[in-house]
Design a protein around this nucleic acid. Structure first.
Lengths: 127, 127
DNA sequence: AGCGGATGCTTGAAATACTTAGCATGGGTC
DNA sequence: GACCCATGCTAAGTATTTCAAGCATCCGCT
């Protein structure tokens, strides 16, 4: 059925690709983590296929995003009920996360927070 | 791929069947509501197949059950002990927070992550 | 008994998810 | 230049999902 169900698949793919890149993973690396072949991941990210529940779950785990988030993108969850699912429920906000990061010195935290706040003050720059 | 899906799939099927019967629906009636063929629904309910996200969603709608409930039954939403690969335990949360930050664009996220990773690679700078 | 309809199930065939092997480009390094 | 090696992608095949058509009971009715 070639229906506008396509657009949802494309949105899901774009989301996965962006998350994979933010995690600094290649297709092959993600493939290894998920036990899904890299060509198939490529096709998913380009919106050519609707992945099964099994594949969605392993992708969600590998990318450290909640399954709910992924499924909302996949169009399974009607409206995003957990608006802050990934952050406020499963973890702290970005500021809190940076402040409590054990691997950063105080100076590093301050620098990172300065960058973060400047971004938020400036607003998102698309492009 | 090996087996222990069988049990999850069977549990999902039993759940759907029980919900359908509670709603006083025949297979054909549910098939009409979901646009899924009745033989296939039969197979799903008997745990012979793992349905796609698409059919899971329409079943959830037709049975007036939340998609989350169905997915929990399907084994997607469980929360296994977050074993970190071979790395850190605190790193992911900052990364995760940045990646899911609603106020940053992808480009900003990437830049911020690059700074964060360089800090971690360098180690804490004292003083 | 014999019909009509409703139920759940089986059976191949069509569609689509998924894999293995390999191609093409791009970035180093000698 | 040439030689890795990593990246994303295509091609062609296998495996799995999903469907249309039909089978087998069962139940109520006359």
């Amino acid at each position: 059925m070639p229906e506008p169900w396509q657009s949802q698949v494309e949105a899901l793919g774009r989301f996965i690709r962006s998350q994979r890149r933010l995690a600094n993973l290649s297709l092959r690396e993600l493939a290894e983590l998920t036990n899904v072949s890299n060509p198939y991941l490529s096709q998913i990210e380009r919106g050519l296929h609707e992945p099964s529940v099994r594949v969605l779950r392993s992708i969600a785990r590998a990318l450290n995003v909640s399954a709910e988030t992924l499924l909302a993108q996949a169009g399974l969850l009607e409206d995003p009920p957990p608006e802050e699912a990934d952050m406020d429920v499963a973890g702290p906000t970005t500021e809190q996360a940076i402040r409590s990061d054990r691997f950063l010195s105080d100076a590093q935290k301050e620098a990172l927070l300065a960058v973060y706040r400047s971004y938020r003050a400036a607003g998102p720059t698309p492009g």
